[in-house]
Design a protein around this nucleic acid. Structure first.
Lengths: 196, 196
DNA sequence: CTCTGCATTAGTACCTGGTACTAATAATAA
DNA sequence: TTATTATTAGTACCAGGTACTAATGCAGAG
């Protein structure tokens, strides 16, 4: 068993390392690389509790998936907790690892903007609203684990234009402030649809 | 063909969105969800140039893989096509279906903001840069299929503060304009790291 | 009303990258 | 030499497809 078993152990080590370096290798690839049969590779994987390539790849993909969805997936960033359409609203954003910048560990500013923008649009009582202009100010960095509470108030309304003021806090500290000029475009859209 | 073709187009839109929301769905899942046969789903995917689930998942996984190994690992929206650090830069964003709002079919403003913000930060020659304030203006809606060219120029520099002006165009039409005040925080970070 | 053309569905053969299992064949230790 | 362990071979089966052919539906044009 000694000589035989050592070769096996050594191969197990190599196998793990190869897969660590490149998880996309199939059993066939590995059999080639290690100069053994495909069955041996399968037995080795079974010994080492290493799943098949497709499962490995899926697992990795699921990792990014969350990261990706965090910003692009949803149209609304943050959770609406209070909404009085046409007046004011409240939204909470839980800052998770995926939302932070790798280097600084600070919440990516786009999330604060997105949260504010989502909330501003939600406030307008219409199907179709778009942001015209915005002036935003990032007051202090936000870190993982913090909860950002955004409060929005409609300060002015003139025709189909709304001015929305947003202040975002972590606890009692102001971290972000913005003014959004939002347009209600439902009329324009209706006109367009009725005259194709 | 009108009624039939419209149903198809609508299904294509839904399909894209479902897969955007969850790229792990198999053809069988999609057939169930959309209430059509599996063959129809395959034809739709062919029309839309959407690869099979395993390929999609692999692509995502490879994405992470690069992400993990990337030296810079910057979260950039849009593709950098020109960058003269400290002076100016150019970035292109291809607007796809997934980036548009469902109701209006218009590019979600956050993408324009994110593209501009990414570009502004990339311009600063440092490891750690954060946006302080921003004033942005959305000039006209952008639609699927359009290419947004963002041009950024550093207009002022004062200590660790940079003023970056960004203008984004579709062809020759201005669609977005913004001013970003960006801070270079590398000094602060170094100080913090040296005194733990 | 029938004909044409696209949309949809059905079905088949085949592929990759496996699992799960059985059996035969080395290689080694006792 | 024999028992033990490692390796290889082979088979049946599976998911999730591709690629192709053929049948059926269904709307609009003439």
């Amino acid at each position: 068993m000694s000589k035989n078993g050592q070769a096996k152990l050594e191969r197990h080590r190599l196998l793990s390392r190869y897969l660590q370096g490149n998880p996309f290798l199939t059993d066939e690839d590995l059999a080639h690389i290690l100069g053994v049969s495909i069955q041996t590779i399968r037995l080795d994987r079974a010994d080492l509790n290493i799943p098949e390539m497709r499962e490995r790849v899926k697992k990795m993909a699921r990792g990014v998936y969350r990261h990706l969805r965090a910003i692009t997936g949803k149209e609304i960033v943050g959770e609406l907790v209070e909404l009085e359409v046409g007046r004011e609203g409240l939204s909470i954003l839980n800052v998770t690892e995926e939302m932070t910048l790798q280097k600084t560990r600070v919440l990516d500013g786009r999330y604060l903007f997105a949260q504010a923008n989502s909330l501003a649009l939600a406030l307008i009582d219409t199907d179709v609203a778009l942001t015209g202009t915005a002036k935003v100010s990032f007051k202090r960095p936000v870190f993982k684990g913090e909860k950002v509470l955004a409060r929005a108030i409609i300060t002015r309304k003139k025709g189909n234009k709304y001015m929305v003021r947003i202040s975002s806090y972590v606890k009692d500290e102001l971290v972000f402030q913005g003014k959004f000029l939002v347009f209600d475009l439902s009329e324009e859209v209706r006109r367009l649809e009725n005259s194709p």
